[in-house]
Computed example of a mutant assay.
Amino acid sequence: MNTQEPDREMNTESQVRNQLKKKLRNQRIRRVITWVVVIAILVGAFQSYSFYKTNGHLPWAKAKAPVTTVKESEAKVYESSFTNTIDLSGYVEPNDIQSVILRSTGTVTDVFVKEGDSVKKGDVLIAIDNTNQLYDVASIKADIEKAKLNGSERDLELLELKLKSATNKLDYTQAYANFDGVVASVKVSEGDYFEAGSSAMTIIDRSKLKATVEIDEIDMQHIKIGQKAELVFDSYTDGTLEGEVTYIPMIGKYTSQGIGVMEVEITIANPPASIAPGYTFEGTITSEGETVLTLLPQSALTVGRGGVTTVTKKLADGKTQTVIVTVKYLGEGISQLLTGDLKVGDTLIIRKTDTNASAFSAMSSGGRSPAGGIMRIE
């Protein structure tokens, strides 16, 4: 038997297997190299893009000097008159509120009013059992009579003080109305056991209604005592109601929005029955007379070193003059002139720098203006 034939077949199989492994290894190497190249290209592209966004040119390109144009326009100093109107909102409260409290503990014997009743100042509203208090007063009075006959002057003085204390305790068994008003609520009934210091009922004064409104510190310069307010209620369909500013506090309040406000009180005298405490309203306060302001565009102002604000005024001969001014910004691109050598009708020069548009124009026209001339850098 020939043994060389199997050996030859094994060598051939081994060679095929080695060639296959080598081929697979080469494929893996080529795949890794391909991915490395792709990632390097992506990283390079991203870095080039980031450099271009930051610097305005690619890393291998020469940086160009920024091209800037200055556009000039004119504006007039003018004046405007207006009536200052301040918006309001809030809800109304009674002119006065009394939480009726008894200063004695005991069983309620009488409730003299019910919800909705009108009361006068000094009316008795509620009473509790006063048997013990009546006894104490009568007993002390008897002791005083005896002291007048047999006691000393000092004993008499002490008894008089004791009588005053007992009389006060007797008075504490009743509650009285502190003002003319209406019973808004009753929380006790006859036979209830009442703890001293608890609220038994509520009395309100509806002869006037008042509201506390927040007014911005900027608008407070236009508010004064006695000023009228026009108020609109959803529950009142006959027009507006007139209110009056009756109280301005001495101390303002700082809100969570970082604004200083004053809590101003407005009073409505003789309100209609359809307006109840707790009802909401919208309204306005209008300042008396008109305010005339000298105005100029905010874009005409230049703030220099040290915060000095200036404008460029055009003179009659065409020359310009720099004028120092102080202003107050009013919003919407308008400022009020406070001080400065300006008058209504003066012409102001407004200079506006436009770098981006000019740079784009320069790039798109090869560094020349659209008219073909060289663009100058001001």
Rank of each mutant, 00 (worst) to 15 (best):
F51V: 03
Y52F: 12
Y52A: 08
Y52T: 06
K53D: 05
K53A: 07
K53T: 07
K53I: 10
K53C: 06
K53W: 07
N55L: 09
N55T: 07
G56Y: 14
G56A: 14
G56Q: 07
G56H: 11
G56N: 04
G56M: 09
H57P: 03
H57S: 08
H57N: 15
P59C: 11
P59F: 13
P59H: 10
W60R: 01
W60C: 07
W60P: 01
K62V: 08
A63Q: 12
K64V: 14
K64G: 00
A65M: 10
A65H: 06
P66E: 11
P66K: 04
P66L: 07
P66F: 01
V67Y: 02
T68G: 01
T69C: 01
T69R: 07
T69I: 11
T69S: 13
T69A: 08
T69Q: 08
V70H: 02
V70K: 00
V70A: 07
K71V: 12
E72A: 13
E72T: 13
E72R: 10
S73G: 10
S73T: 15
S73H: 03
E74V: 08
E74K: 07
E74I: 12
A75T: 12
A75D: 13
A75W: 12
K76P: 06
K76M: 15
V77G: 02
V77Q: 02
V77R: 01
Y78K: 02
E79A: 11
E79D: 13
E79W: 04
E79Y: 06
S80A: 13
S80M: 09
S80W: 07
S81N: 04
S81Y: 04
S81H: 03
S81C: 09
F82V: 05
F82K: 05
T83C: 00
T83N: 03
T83K: 06
T83W: 00
N84I: 07
N84G: 02
T85Q: 14
I86V: 15
I86M: 04
D87L: 05
L88P: 00
S89M: 05
S89L: 04
G90T: 09
Y91N: 12
Y91R: 02
Y91V: 00
Y91A: 12
V92T: 05
V92R: 01
V92A: 03
V92E: 05
V92C: 02
E93W: 01
P94E: 06
N95C: 04
D96M: 04
I97T: 15
I97V: 15
I97Y: 03
I97S: 08
Q98L: 09
Q98G: 06
S99A: 11
S99E: 15
V100C: 08
V100Y: 13
I101Q: 05
L102F: 15
R103G: 10
R103K: 10
R103L: 08
R103Q: 11
S104V: 13
S104R: 04
T105H: 12
T107H: 12
T107V: 15
V108Q: 07
T109Q: 14
T109Y: 14
T109P: 06
D110V: 09
D110R: 08
V111F: 09
V111H: 05
V111D: 11
F112S: 10
F112N: 11
F112H: 08
